[in-house]
């Protein structure tokens, strides 16, 4: 069973990247059709009721959305194939610049949420698995289910209420003064603040991150708690764990080196699968905390029936999900010697 005999990792990566093309086509098509099926259009959403019907039709004609659907569809597909995502109808911003300007806020939010989820989820899951059916286990499981079941905006509002009066920042990614002072370089505010060397700004941005990341992280950590707990229960009964005991390895090393390590491998896969959930949760979290990320933008553009903007952003989300799952596969291959592509 030589590992080299079963194809190589680079070839696998190329295959996966090529598979993205049909997938993105499906996403683009579905989003395109869904938006057309939804009642209203960009014109009626922005100025409907305030202008005459003739005037509205004239504007629709100007935007080209009066043409047959298949014409619009083919035209849009052609644009996407040439990586031209166009501009938003409602505020004339290129889709790429929306992603660059607002993507950074979503990126730091989701990464922070994952960090929170792992830091809370893994230790709690390990404790619950180690002390199965103890009071701690029951408590942790209840916590996990609750944090997963409670809607993001409820968690967010409760945290805002708790933070209220303490002066802790409860909305936006930074205070206005920080936003004004920090020069945008990467458009990731935290990184920009670090580049500027303005530690006050870094602290300010980090403080603003705490509540949103905690909110989104709590949603995720429920998944991790349950996964780690169940995996640990399984690996603790594993044959190699008993074999390690039979060699006289002290129990704490048996648990740490044999049971924990093997229990954490599936976590990598699930981490990748959670990216989609996280992005969905990010939209709600951003709304709750008035976070200047892609989620907030997406909701605005949806309300405006801004076809190209919504299509562009959803396609971007889809690409992110696919790319992260690819990265997860690669990491998996590096961590687990049995996985070879």
């Amino acid at each position: 069973m030589a590992s080299a005999a079963q194809g190589s990792l680079p070839r696998y990566v190329v295959q996966r990247l090529l598979l993205m093309i049909p997938m993105i086509w499906v996403v683009v098509t579905v989003v395109f059709l869904l938006l057309r099926v939804a009642p209203g259009d960009p014109v009626s959403a922005s100025v409907g009721g305030r202008l005459s019907e003739e005037e509205l039709d004239r504007r629709r004609e100007a935007l080209g959305i009066d043409r047959p659907l298949w014409q619009q569809y083919l035209e849009y597909l052609g644009d996407v194939a040439r990586f031209r995502f166009g501009e938003s109808l409602s505020d004339n911003r290129p889709i790429t610049s929306i992603i660059i300007d607002n993507g950074g806020a979503t990126l730091t939010l989701t990464l922070g949420a994952f960090l929170v989820a792992l830091v809370i989820g893994i230790p709690l899951g390990l404790v619950a698995g180690r002390r199965r059916d103890s009071a701690a286990d029951v408590g942790i499981r209840l916590f996990g289910i609750t944090s997963y079941a409670v809607p993001v905006f409820v968690t967010g509002l409760v945290l805002v209420l708790l933070a209220g009066g303490t002066g802790w920042p409860t909305y936006d990614i930074a205070s206005p003064i920080t936003k004004f002072q920090v020069e945008p370089v990467t458009h990731i505010l935290l990184v920009d603040a670090l580049i500027a060397g303005d530690m006050g700004a870094v602290g300010d941005v980090l403080q603003h991150h705490v509540l949103p990341c905690l909110t989104l992280g709590l949603l995720l950590c429920g998944v991790f708690i349950r996964l780690v707990r169940v995996n640990l229960l399984m690996t603790m009964k594993g044959d190699y764990v008993e074999a390690a005991r039979a060699r006289g390895i002290p129990e704490r090393y048996v648990v740490r080196r044999h049971a924990f390590r093997n229990a954490l491998v599936p976590l990598i896969t699930v981490l990748g699968l959670q990216v989609a959930l996280t992005l969905a949760g990010a939209i709600l979290t951003e709304r709750t905390f008035n976070w200047p990320g892609l989620g907030t933008q997406l909701v605005d553009y949806l309300n405006a029936r801004d076809y190209p903007a919504v299509q562009g952003l959803v396609t971007f989300f889809a690409v992110i999900v696919v790319v992260t799952s690819l990265i997860v596969d690669i990491v998996n291959a590096l961590v687990d010697p049995r996985v070879r592509y």
Binding site: D239, Y240, G248
Partner: peptide, 24 residues
């Protein structure tokens, strides 16, 4: 007893396929 295992008392199991830690 754990200290005796391995040095004084050894064990060979039935299913060799699953008795080694796959990550080591």
């Amino acid at each position: 007893l754990a200290e005796r295992r391995g040095v004084d008392l050894g064990m060979i199991f039935q299913e060799p396929l699953t008795r080694l830690n796959p990550l080591m």
